[in-house]
Design a protein around this nucleic acid. Structure first.
Lengths: 191, 191
DNA sequence: AACCATACGGAGAAGCCGTTCCGCTTGTCA
DNA sequence: TGACAAGCGGAACGGCTTCTCCGTATGGTT
């Protein structure tokens, strides 16, 4: 339908795209949203022009990062769902692993609810829905087995992510124990 | 020692300072941190120069806002502590009232963990410590009466604030039910 | 009323940052 | 190996925002 063969990319172009995404992940993780495109380019050892060839705007680059993140989280959820029979254990495993991943680039995670990032999130909408579906199944199973609060729903997951992300991001500029907070959150979900 | 009589301010200056703070509260609450100093000036019906006369930088203005907020929260905590004998009820009342206040200007609250805001928070450090002291007493009482988890400490309060603030701020750009989240949080603190 | 220190207004300087543009380089394919 | 499309680099543009500067206005005081 859309593009049967979207045309092969030149080898260096593919390599550069890769580098840019990696650099962006590092740079945004460290400096937050106010990191500049020039920084991304420099870290990727590439000109700004090249960055813009691959991602037409900053939001597009951010969008790619978010999509990647959602894909990764969905993968984690799927794995726990497949490997663990107990519904609650699967969900708890997923949550802990995801939170740990967030700790690494909490800054980006926190900013997901931003003005400027609104557009970026929109670009990752497909991935977000997939993630939501997978996690929803985990939750249903845990509740069916009576080990999770019945009032908790998939719609609450973004709030959780948001909260934990904010706490982790804040940790850098304030003496906050994010791990303890995570324990409170998880405890609060048990039946 | 420092300034026995710091010199009286001219009446118009005092009036303008007041106006600026009020305007800043409104403007930042509505547009978040990216609101401009010009906006504040306009809403205050004052020139930018006047804003800068009273607050040498944007961070200083933000700092004043935070200090006010901390003072207010401390006042709320004191009131609940004085009027309510049951330790848990006092703490819960304080939390709920504070969260409700945060809902009104969640944007500002969330951004408290920012690079640029780091400086602003530093300027409100004194107020933060006072607040911390008052809330600490509430917590101790609730725990002494066995109605609150013993593992919870005053140091965890910023995390709570941060988390709830983030969720409330995110609500504007995503379908998140902040009230439900607040219930989870409070439930998680009960003994 | 007359004086002047204090305070005001707002144009614009200074600087930051996303994005564009175009001359040059390089991978690819015949 | 030569030709050319695809891709690259990075100077510079333009918009936006914080902060400065200084001529003007005004509250307070004598």
């Amino acid at each position: 339908m859309s593009s049967p063969e979207p045309k092969p990319q030149r080898a260096d172009a593919r390599r550069n795209r890769e580098r840019i995404v990696e650099a962006a992940r590092d740079v945004f993780a460290e400096a937050g949203l106010q990191a500049q495109m020039d920084d991304v380019a420099r870290v990727a050892c590439v000109g700004v022009g090249t960055v813009y060839r691959h991602f037409p705007t900053k939001a597009a680059l951010l969008g790619e990062l978010m999509a990647t993140k959602f894909r990764h989280h969905a993968e984690v959820a799927r794995r726990w769902g497949a490997e663990t029979d107990d519904g609650w254990d699967a969900f708890e495993g997923f949550l802990r692993e995801t939170f740990a991943a967030m700790a690494r680039d909490a800054t980006l995670q926190q900013r997901m609810s931003w003005t400027q990032v609104g557009e970026a999130v929109a670009r990752a909408e497909a991935e977000r829905q997939i993630l939501s579906g997978v996690v929803g199944e985990l939750i249903e199973r845990a509740q069916a087995q009576g080990r999770m609060r019945a009032t908790f729903t998939v719609q609450d997951v973004p709030a959780l992510m948001c909260a934990v992300g904010a706490v982790m991001a804040a940790r850098e500029s304030a003496p906050i124990d994010a791990e303890r907070f995570v324990e409170f959150v998880i405890d609060g979900l048990r039946a």
